[in-house]
Computed example of a mutant assay.
Amino acid sequence: MITGAGKGMGPAISQAFSSEGAKIVILGRDMTALETLKEEIGPKASVTVIRCDVTSASDCEAAVSQAETAHGRVDVLVNVAGGTGPVGDTAWETTPEGFDEIIKLNMGGCFLMMKAVLPGMIARRYGKIVNVGGTFGMHGRAGRMAYSASKWGLRGITKSTAIEVGPYNINVNIVAPGMVDGPRFRTKVMPGMAEAAGRSEEEIIAEHAAEYALRRISSAQDVANACLFLASDVSRQITGIDLPVDGGWAAL
């Protein structure tokens, strides 16, 4: 099961799992985006589309029930669904509504999906959960307080749950992307940061790349590869970790 599959990094992650032969269940609110993704993956693949608002407990429970009915079990959950929150706002400029909204989505959405899928995984004594966090949840960033708080909180949810479900042979980890080039990065994040800094988007992008050891911004495929690794049995002895996919930014 892959949440937030239709947008952002979701399509690349969905394509990556499908290319490995996985039967995938793609979730989201935008059914047009999900159906388009299903067509792009191709008719030979096993792709089930389910509408799901991850901030709704009933939606999450219904989605897991539908997936288990269709396929018998859910082996892997990848929580991609999330948002950026206020961009460029200081802590004192962030509204309570803006703060609550991103916490509910980035933390609450992962919690609700995990809560829905874990009983089945525990009963079968097998499961892989990969939460997509962010390096701003490992290293603070001015102008991104609310987003950073949501990703710091997701780390706590992930690590505590990993301890609880470890005895049931279930791995729970975080992939923490840095800046990821793509539509949302170009149309929402960069314009907001450029406006707040009073500089061009090209200058802001170049500044970010210069902060990374590898001097380049990550791609959605980089993130997808990390998700595949943590969802596979190659990583059977890894749980409760943050895996930065950021060209070395968090380590510097």
Results as ranks from 00 to 15, higher is better:
Gly248Lys: 09
Ile24Val: 14
Gly88Asn: 04
Asp181Val: 15
Leu214Glu: 08
Pro11Arg: 06
Ser56Val: 14
Leu37His: 07
Gly198Ser: 11
Ala226Arg: 02
Thr161Leu: 03
Gly10Pro: 02
Gly6Ala: 13
Asp222Glu: 05
Asn79Cys: 10
Glu97Pro: 09
Asp181Cys: 15
Gly6Asp: 11
Val245Met: 01
Ala209Asp: 00
Ala45Cys: 06
Ala213Thr: 13
Leu37Trp: 07
Glu203Ser: 15
Lys7Phe: 11
Val76Trp: 02
Val223Leu: 00
Leu34Trp: 00
Lys44Cys: 13
Ile13Tyr: 01
Ala250Lys: 06
Thr135Asp: 01
Asp242Trp: 07
Met190Phe: 10
Val76Ser: 03
Leu27Ile: 06
Thr69Met: 06
Glu93Cys: 12
Ile13Arg: 00
Ala250Ser: 11
Asn79Ala: 06
Ile174His: 06
Met179Phe: 12
Asn225Met: 15
Val80His: 05
Ala22Cys: 15
Ala220Trp: 02
Ile238Ala: 09
Gly140His: 13
Val47Trp: 04
Val49Leu: 04
Asp75Lys: 04
Ala196Val: 14
Asn169Pro: 04
Ala116Lys: 01
Thr239Ala: 07
Glu203Asn: 13
Asn173Ser: 05
Val172Gly: 01
Val132Trp: 04
Glu20Trp: 12
Ala63Pro: 02
Ile217Ser: 04
Ala162Gly: 01
Pro11Leu: 08
Ala176Asn: 06
Glu40Gly: 11
Gly153Arg: 02
Asn225Gly: 13
Arg199Asp: 11
Glu101Lys: 14
Lys151Thr: 12
Gly198Lys: 09
Pro119Leu: 06
Tyr126Phe: 10
Ser232Ile: 14
Thr48Asn: 12
Ser18Thr: 09
Pro11Tyr: 01
Ile2Glu: 01
Leu214Ala: 13
Val25Lys: 01
Val245Gly: 00
Ala162Met: 05
Met31Ser: 05
Ala70Val: 10
Cys52Val: 15
Glu101Asp: 12
Glu211Lys: 10
Met190Arg: 07
Glu97Leu: 14
Glu164Tyr: 01
Met193Ala: 12
Thr36Met: 13
Gly88Phe: 10
Leu243Phe: 02
Thr84Leu: 15
Pro167Phe: 05
